[in-house]
Design a protein around this nucleic acid. Structure first.
Length: 756
RNA sequence: AGCCCGAUCGUCUAACGGUAGGACAGCGCCCUUUGGAGGCGUACGUGGUGGUUCGAAUCCUCCUCGGGCUACCA
């Protein structure tokens, strides 16, 4: 492609256009959490998006606590939210706001709406309100209080505010439309009475605004330019626009919706996460298996990895379920360059080197980072000391009595390199009563010392620790919380799908250097994965290590338990389209004019189209052409919400222009849009803009030759058989000529030129 | 049932009427004192129908499938 494809997502496209048209003095976005729970990975997407867009366009992003419900919100959550966003690496400067700080202004705006006669106090009970709202298929009915006078509404609302009424006796409603197909617009409630103490405003208020009212007003007060929210608020946009229409002038904020993120093998919903905590399926909100940011942080994920992940998943309006492999990739990609290597044995198997002198030890200097990482700019050349001796632990998994095909590790009689040390040969295996290997007796080859090997032997290198210096440690091996990609699919209780092996805790040994590394060090334990000390349970006396993520493992794909092997593939359903019966009117029209029935259907569906069609045909235009134009182009204009400027005279003239070969079909479409926009006659448009079709073969040949020389690479590809490039060349000539070249003539000349 | 939104490789996402591309995952080879990292290669996609057009993932049509909306939550 080309370098012009800079757009990252549809939201940035929108903002970019608004910037280009200078619609706002500065771009201002906001992240508006409700302080009633913990932030999770889904919020990270929104945070990265809002702060990221603001930064991209030299604007700013506000952090606003959406605290309009006194019953669920707490200061503690405010603090946790702030802490997490800072941890992620974002800074809102002085722009920390609280919707509750706007209560006075919101109240004044409510008075304005009442004064305008577009809001009223409803005194129905909540059941009545619900009942009268109707349903998805039935329209609602107006409240009997809907036509109260402005004075009465005002008086009532002021008394509501002053605490004259108990909870639930009155609400303030917008005068929407109780018959609206959009349920949200059936007189949405703006304010309710709640004699509850708010964590910030205390008992100052006994009426509290609802989201649909508070959110747009808050945005407007802060001069937000773009208010991004998730798809389920789509229907709420009507209220947003309604409020802006009554209370604000341009520039005003607009709401745009994007799809929330779903992640494989987990749930991302405050309610469901709360259930897991309450029912003790996890140890708390920060249990490292949880998808909360607090949990991810405790597990050892870096802020950078989460930002990378959030950027990589993209933004669109499609429902999605992100492959957890992408998150794992993000953290591995980060840690590979920053985590020093260490050795630790999780499931020890003792090795005795029979030819190693009894009391001898050797101090080895091991690199903290492999050279390829250093070459790519990560890590450093530092080393640490590791003791080598007569008895060692190796990983039980690295020995096999009966190795499967492709095995490269230790077998009876086989050789293996102890990483950074020597190559050893397994001479004897001592088994316990259960037939499990209990000890390996081996000999080392002194000539194979790492870095000084003179033998040229090749052997796989495995990790090990010396028993003399091994430090016991607890390892917490985390796996996905659920055992299926979509825990909520096919069951009413998502907890049925909990992975019983999501946490495996084992005891093993680490090399001594790890006891002296600075706290919060993240290591790569060679061949095992990335780990760090659990911030809550690890102590200098006894290390408790969280496995952040395993290493990618292209060997053990042999379906270990707990991991899903293959995702169930959904067959795409291909159903035959069943045509609904054509209407009588359409059949009649189709028969009368001999036009396509499907097109006749479209034309008869809208009276404007029917009229346009008949009038144009009456002017003598070819019915088939008129039908195509009306059902495609005119219909699209109406779909876009415009009224038809285009009339029968225009259309018949346009068709004539095409029939006469003055313009081509593509140009004709362009002309039609111009006519719709300006109301000018087609011939005038063609004349003014010089859109006459080019049919002269010599001129066309010129375009063709220019194009062919401009794209030698594609020309070569074409000649070597990639004939679908004909369309590519056609397109280039059309672009070069402004779409004016006669298509069929061009095709002939182009084919000839390419053949030569 | 009404209204709204959506449908592109296994997954996520580009292509704004002109070569369907990238990333992750997969597979293969090379490299490797981590079965890691890396390199090279490979495979895989426009839900279906009809139409407009020289040319359709893109515009029009219907169908199918998925999601949202009937809280004094957000």
């Amino acid at each position: 492609m080309s370098e012009t494809t800079l757009s990252k997502d549809f939201l940035r496209d929108i903002v970019g256009e608004d910037v280009a048209k200078e619609r706002y003095p500065t771009i201002i976005t906001r992240f508006p959490p409700e302080p009633n729970g913990y932030l999770h990975i889904g919020h990270a997407k929104s945070i990265v998006l809002n702060f990221g867009i603001a930064a991209d366009f030299q604007g700013r992003c506000h952090l606003r606590m959406d605290d309009t419900n006194p019953e669920t919100e707490e200061t503690e959550y405010v603090e946790k939210i702030i802490e997490m966003i800072q941890w992620l690496g974002y800074d809102w400067g002085t722009h920390l706001y609280f919707a509750s700080d706007y209560f006075d202004q919101m109240y004044e705006f409510a008075l304005v709406l009442i004064q305008k006669g577009v809001a009223y106090v409803d005194s129905q009970t909540d059941e009545e309100i619900r009942k009268n709202r109707g349903s998805l298929i039935e329209t609602g009915v107006d409240s009997p209080y809907r036509n109260r006078s402005i004075a009465e509404n005002r008086d009532l609302f002021i008394r509501m505010k002053n605490g004259a009424f108990p909870d639930g006796t009155h609400v303030l409603r917008a005068k929407g439309d109780m018959g609206s197909p959009n349920m949200k617009m059936r007189d949405p409630i703006l304010y309710r009475i709640k004699h509850a103490s708010h964590y910030r405003t205390g008992d100052k208020w006994c009426i509290y605004p609802l989201y649909d009212y508070a959110h747009p007003i808050s945005d407007a007060i802060e001069h937000i330019s773009h208010s991004f929210c998730t798809l389920e608020f789509d229907n709420n946009r009507a209220i947003y626009d309604w409020l802006m229409g009554h209370l604000w002038e341009a520039p005003r904020p607009y709401q745009y919706e994007f799809a929330r993120m779903n992640l494989d093998y987990t749930v991302v919903s405050k309610r469901k996460l709360l259930q897991l905590v309450r029912e003790k399926h996890v140890s708390g909100w920060d249990d490292p298996r949880m998808p909360t940011l607090a949990a991810l942080r405790r597990r050892g994920f870096t802020p950078a990895s989460i930002r990378t992940f959030a950027e990589k998943i993209g933004v669109a309006k499609t429902e999605n379920r992100i492959d957890i492999a992408l998150l794992e990739w993000a953290i591995r990609n980060d840690l590979n360059f920053s985590a020093p290597r260490r050795m630790a044995v999780l499931e020890p198997l003792k090795v005795v080197l029979t030819n190693w002198p009894e009391d001898q030890t050797e101090v080895l200097q091991l690199q903290n980072f492999p050279s390829d990482v250093i070459e790519k700019g990560g890590g450093d050349h530092s080393v640490r000391e590791v003791l080598f001796g007569k008895t060692l632990y190796i990983e039980r998994e690295d020995f096999a009595k009966n190795p499967p095909k492709g095995w490269k590790r230790l077998i009876p009689g086989g050789e293996i390199r102890l990483k950074g040390a020597y190559i050893i040969r397994c001479d004897e295996v001592i088994y316990d009563a259960d037939g499990r290997a209990a000890e390996i007796r081996a000999t080392y080859d002194p000539a194979t010392k790492s870095g000084q090997d003179t033998t040229g032997k090749k052997a796989t290198a495995i990790h090990w620790v010396s028993t003399a210096t091994a430090i016991p440690a607890t390892f917490r091996l985390y796996d996905r919380l659920f055992s299926v990609p979509d825990p909520e699919d096919g069951t009413d209780d998502f907890k049925q799908n909990l992975n019983p092996n999501s946490l495996v805790q084992i005891q093993g040994f680490v090399e001594p250097a790890m006891a002296h590394d600075p706290p919060e060090t993240r290591w790569q334990l060679e061949r095992q994965g990335y780990f760090w000390p659990d911030p809550v349970d690890s102590t200098p006396e006894h290390l408790v290590l969280n496995r952040i993520v395993t290493l990618r493992d292209s060997w053990e794909k042999l379906a270990p338990s707990g991991k899903a092997v293959d995702k169930p593939k959904e067959k795409k359903t291909t159903t035959q389209a069943t045509r609904s019966e054509a209407s009588e009117a359409a059949k009649q029209l189709a028969q009368q004019y001999g036009i396509d029935l499907r097109q006749a259907e479209i034309i008869t569906h809208r009276i404007e189209l029917t009229n346009l069609f008949r009038e144009t045909v009456d002017l003598g235009a070819d019915a088939t052409s008129v039908s195509a134009w009306v059902s495609n182009e005119a219909n699209k204009i109406l779909n876009d919400g415009q009224t038809l400027v285009l009339n029968a005279t225009h259309l018949s003239a346009l068709i004539q222009l095409t029939a006469d070969g003055i313009i081509g079909a593509t140009t004709a479409k362009q002309v039609l849009l111009e006519v719709q926009e300006t109301g000018k006659a087609p011939a005038i448009v063609v004349e003014e803009q010089g859109l006459q079709q080019i049919s002269d073969p010599d001129i066309i040949l010129g375009f063709v030759q220019d194009t062919l020389t401009a794209f030698p690479e594609q020309l070569a590809q074409y000649k070597s058989g990639k004939t679908q490039l004909l369309g590519f060349f056609t397109g280039k000539v059309m672009q070069a000529s402004g779409g004016k070249v006669h298509a069929t003539v061009l095709r002939r000349i182009l084919t000839e030129a390419l053949a030569s």
